[in-house]
Design a protein around this nucleic acid. Sequence first.
DNA 1: CAAATACTTCGAAGGTTTTCGAAATAACGC
DNA 2: GCGTTATTTCGAAAACCTTCGAAGTATTTG
Lengths: 114, 114
Amino acid sequence: MKMDSHHPLDLTRAASAFAALGSEQRLSVLRTLVRAGPEGLSIGELGTRTGVTGSTLTHHVKILNSAGLVTQARQGRSIICAAVAFDEVQELADFLLTECCADSDATHEDHTHG
Amino acid sequence: MKMDSHHPLDLTRAASAFAALGSEQRLSVLRTLVRAGPEGLSIGELGTRTGVTGSTLTHHVKILNSAGLVTQARQGRSIICAAVAFDEVQELADFLLTECCADSDATHEDHTHG
DNA sequence: CAAATACTTCGAAGGTTTTCGAAATAACGC
DNA sequence: GCGTTATTTCGAAAACCTTCGAAGTATTTG
């Protein structure tokens, strides 16, 4: 469910991705997946590592998935989750910073990223 | 109020910064300030440009300020707001990605940012 | 000091999110 | 098909967020 995450970010999509990251539990889930790398982890293992379990974990993973930050794929009895955050988070940063100072009349000081 | 934003990010602070970005209205406010550059904008002008006004705007700016993403300074009758997002957003991205694959047993594939 | 401007605080109404447990579905082995 | 493991759906309770308008504070001007 939801495989499309490669059109450029609009305000609505960016806000919902940021909102997905804006909970300690979900941020901790996503970081655990980022640490785990491209192989991913089952929901069960993710629960063991983060302390978030059951329907609560299902709920949070679904939000991260809808935000395009996590993939889910069935493998036998388990669902394997993996972080897609690698590029996505840079895209989010760019969404905010890309037009830096565009409206500024001033002698553009160096506040860019990089 | 709140000038300290230079200790390293912990989970709680990072989540609250992401949560601050996770509303269309606040994201639009912050982008408007990023576009405006280091000079910043008054609350009134910010309201004119974003369509968010009055106590609602006060509320949203306060959340962005508490998250360390916006500064506020009185100048005469106005309050001038400016984005601090420049470095802060890169820090947030790093918070997520820094430990990429640390727990992975696999032959580390290249999923890093850069 | 009074009036005007710029913004904030307060409090309430409405909406959304979070969390939980019980029942449901999916896949595997016997 | 039946039991077991892994995860999801459903529904309800509590907590939290958003928005609004009315009243309040701060600052400048006459």
